[in-house]
Amino acid sequence: MRDIAISIKNLDKYYGSFHALKNVNLEVPDKQTLVICGPSGSGKSTLIRCMNGLETYRSGSLEVLGLPVGDNTKTLDQVRKRVGMVFQSFNLFPHFTILENCVLPQIRAIGRDRAEATEEARDQLKKMQVDDHVEKYPDQLSGGQQQRVALARALSLKPEIMLFDEPTSALDPEMISEVLEVMQDLARADMTIVCVTHEMGFAKAVADRVILMAQGEIVEEGTPEQIFNTPQQQITKDFMAAVNG
């Protein structure tokens, strides 16, 4: 039983000459729910996308579930099968039904047979409360429903870590809560979660830890109460004021 799910040491990332991540150090223990927030351009998305290899980095080290994430395609493959991700723009496959969206990745990524995959998919879709839409296509569903399907799709692979990259930013306000609810259930079920979000209510409710990033660096970290009620750094205070005011 590992203690540390994700371990990041001295991570540096550049986009050309732009220094996107500056000497980031972070440890995410198992079963922790971590929320990353901060102003746009702070590198939050970049950081979370490094965790499953969607972005590369120049120097430092990144270990996920004990496996180094870097140049080695084999370990990258293994990591991706055990880490799930939900995107801001859902990224469902529009030419497949909801059910097939959840079934196909299981068959292709981890080689389950179709019957087993279908059962698992139906199970997850039921938990996300979209099971009466299984034969529909993504664009027939609302944004909130699509995002829940995306979550079901990721969970069908039974990941050990879930990454969320601004999962509710593209949703109409009335649909945000239905997605946050299922995310909260997930957190309470002891899933290791890293979530980039602006939804402070969610952070207050379920986060074990919150970090604030600005300009590629981690500026402050602590429990939700510490960050929201007693911010230490000026940047944090400014950000909280902007978000709340």
């Binding site: 140049d71 080695n72 395609t73 084999k74 370990t75 990258l76």
Partner: peptide, 12 residues
Amino acid sequence: MSQLLASQKFRS
């Protein structure tokens, strides 16, 4: 060796 083969830089 298999590490080398799996390296993306090497493969490319």
